[in-house]
Design a protein around this nucleic acid. Structure first.
Length: 131
DNA sequence: GCATTGACGAAGG
DNA sequence: CCCTTCGCCAATG
């Protein structure tokens, strides 16, 4: 049986209406939506969970399209591996991300999550607990 | 069709 | 310890 090579699905190859159905997007969104309030995860952790073949950049790329996602994705809970709010400029206002996180009980200092190691929510780790 | 960019991350200098 | 380079893969010009 021929191995089903990863079908090269691109958002551009789909009608706008189906972009939100883009599997890779949904995978990312599903994980992000699982992040509990007051916790954060990273692009790399999500990429690792989906498979190391996918780079963390693709996660960021997917997040960029998360505005079109329904239900909405708490993108503010996704930060880079350093705990920095690198995506803050992609929100409606540069302070939206920080405000949302503070509202959820996450302390932000110098555009970074305080006690990031404790706040970190690892998809793979959490998935194991569910098993 | 090539070059640049990007909400990343690891490695090297 | 800070900065640069490279790999990652798709989008965009």
């Amino acid at each position: 049986m021929q191995k089903k090579k990863q079908k090269k699905i691109t958002a551009a190859s789909l009608p706008d209406r189906n972009k939100q159905s883009f599997l890779f997007f949904e995978d990312v969104y599903s994980i992000v939506r699982l992040v509990p309030k007051g916790r954060v995860t990273t692009y790399g952790a999500i990429a690792a969970y989906l498979g190391s073949k996918l780079s963390a950049r693709m996660v960021g790329w997917a997040m960029n399209a998360s505005h079109n996602a329904i239900p909405p994705v708490p993108a503010q809970r996704v930060v880079n591996r350093n705990g920095m709010l690198t995506g803050k400029h992609h929100f409606e206002t540069p302070t939206t991300m920080e405000i949302l996180l503070r509202k959820e009980g996450v302390q932000i200092k110098d555009d970074a999550v305080v006690d990031f190691a404790e706040r970190f929510w690892d998809p793979m780790q959490e998935m194991e607990q569910l098993l």
